[in-house]
């Protein structure tokens, strides 16, 4: 059971972006997918949501092949928050969050109210999206995914373009979702935030898994040097380890 990736190969254009990734994500836990630019993090996330065809291997959702299951069923199970947070029409926050119910084909009044409450956006419900600040907008887009009550929440850099306070609040939201049993998979760039939020870490390099497992075991100086090519110092702190890049490894 769960969301597992088995020897996954993905080719984009003529480039092999993922070359045999095997990983498994656990419900109720937050997994951070880390790696240098171009390591295949976003591609892995998109492939998990069946947005990209695998050229080899497969993604299994609760024991079934995610690529061949009915799109609607897959959409009910997996909520995907893309990195490009475009909202092309200036609709109201409520209409936007309601889109999360499309896979269920119902009004989902309670789920929408819960998503608005969880993201602290209920007061914004009747505002047009373009009148929101960047932080408010990110929370509303997250509410859209939560409104679908997915069992898996895949988010591609949900913290990009957020200020520190909103980063912490968003992380708290994602942690809370995991606390309710949702499997959360995040692509992150900030190593310190990853160390703080993630239960598990999947470290990618050149389209393959360099290391995977509990965060503390994976986020070592040696692994990070191998993945990013930087020397890092890992400093203990009450809120979680602080990872400071120091120079070329």
């Amino acid at each position: 059971m769960g969301l597992t990736v088995d020897n996954l190969h993905v080719v984009l254009g003529k480039r092999a972006v993922l070359g045999g990734v095997t990983a498994s994500f656990v419900p109720g836990r937050v997994t951070a997918v880390l790696g240098a630019n171009g390591a295949g993090k976003s591609t892995l996330l998109r492939a998990c949501a069946a947005l990209l065809p695998a050229s080899g291997g497969q993604v299994m959702l609760d024991g079934r092949d995610a690529a061949t299951m009915p799109a609607r069923e897959r959409a009910q199970a997996i909520g995907y928050l893309p990195q490009d947070a475009a909202v092309h029409w200036n609709m109201t926050v409520r209409d936007l969050v309601r889109l999360g119910r499309l896979p269920h084909g119902d009004d989902g009044v309670e789920a929408i109210a819960a998503a608005l409450a969880a993201t602290d956006t209920a007061a914004l419900a009747d505002r047009p999206v373009r009148s929101l600040s960047g932080g408010e907008r990110a929370r509303v887009l997250l509410a859209r995914v939560l409104a679908g009550e997915p069992r898996w929440l895949l988010a591609d850099e949900p913290l990009a373009s957020l200020d520190p306070l909103h980063q912490l609040e968003t992380l708290a939201l994602l942690r809370a979702a995991a606390g309710r049993g949702t499997g959360v998979v995040l692509v992150l760039h900030d190593l310190t935030l990853a160390a703080r939020v993630a239960d598990d870490v999947l470290l990618l390099k050149d389209g393959a898994v360099l290391a995977g497992g509990p965060a503390a075991a994976v986020l070592t100086e040696a692994n990070l040097a191998a993945a990013y090519g930087v020397r890092v110092a890992i400093l203990p702190h009450a809120a979680g380890p602080v990872i400071v890049p120091q120079g070329r490894a």
């Binding site: 909520g79 893309p82 936007l96």
Partner: peptide, 9 residues
């Protein structure tokens, strides 16, 4: 409205 990837998801 949310872009092609989100729509497919």
């Amino acid at each position: 409205t949310l872009g092609p990837d989100a729509a497919r998801s």
